[in-house]
Write a protein that binds this DNA or RNA. Structure first.
Lengths: 146, 146
DNA sequence: CCGTATCCTAAGTGATACTG
DNA sequence: CAGTATCACTTAGGATACGG
């Protein structure tokens, strides 16, 4: 059918050769989207990220700052004011995130439908060799006999 | 500067409105890439995914099957043979993954450089109001005085 | 306002051994 | 070959309270 797979296809040190890890966590992509329209303050970011605790938001922003995705600017005022802004590097993530959102818009319904179909199906005949193969079902697991 | 952020910007139930979660885990994207060239057997997949344990590969494939991304076909032979193949839905992930890999190729070096610069910097003057602002450093945190 | 400090849970991942 | 069964471990994430 095809050649054998390359054993060194993926970098064992950095699997992000397949997907950049720094946007793989729960919040980073959403923070990038929130900063698309300009610099935002800490509390301002907490509004759309409903439920995020200050600790987790701080963690996320610190990691993004470390990776050169955002800058942090503290104004010496009272009460204090801090603004976060996308760097040029951080802004390059926007096209990638847009692509992901487009995928979700176009294909997530099909995925969720498949998931629901899978849950409602009692059992999809998982390699149980004594049973008939029931080729008419919508199960994603198939049995082939020689 | 900009309008206030929409508090309902993200779906609290499904944050994948920002990034589809099913490719956010460690292995799914790599499995999709491995299956791009055609159906593969369980052991065949373990080769490029160096270090993956059978338990984790099974978990990953079961979840992908549940979500309609792959099909599982068991042949009633001895020794047993099972093949996994991308569905049409799973194949749509390829363009998204390619975009992510292109981003990594183009921008990951800059990110890693920023990270290293951040580690070698002793301390980036974090809002410590008594100290001078040192505007010449490459730190991503800035201090502004009125 | 913008965080830190603790404590905690749940999930993802991994090592090892065993089975149809 | 293609898994399952345990056990252990790490970390992201969250709850709550407090501090400059």
């Amino acid at each position: 059918m095809a050649e054998p797979l390359d054993p060194e296809m993926f970098d064992p040190v950095c699997p992000s050769s397949a997907m950049p890890i720094q946007i793989g966590d729960k919040w980073t992509a959403m923070v990038v989207i929130c900063l698309e329209s300009g610099p935002r303050r800490f509390t301002e970011l907490r509004v759309p990220l409903r439920g995020i605790t200050p600790k987790v938001l701080t963690q996320t922003l610190r990691a993004m700052e470390r990776d050169g995705l955002v800058t942090r600017t503290a104004y010496d005022e009272n009460p204090p004011r801090v603004e976060y802004e996308l760097t040029d590097l951080g802004r390059t993530l926007l096209t990638l995130i847009d692509a992901a959102r487009a995928w979700s818009r176009d294909h997530l319904p099909a995925l969720l439908e498949a998931r629901e179909r899978h849950e409602t199906t009692p059992r999809p005949a998982l390699l149980r060799a004594g049973e008939p193969s029931r080729p008419g079902t919508a199960a994603s697991t198939h049995l082939h006999r020689q």
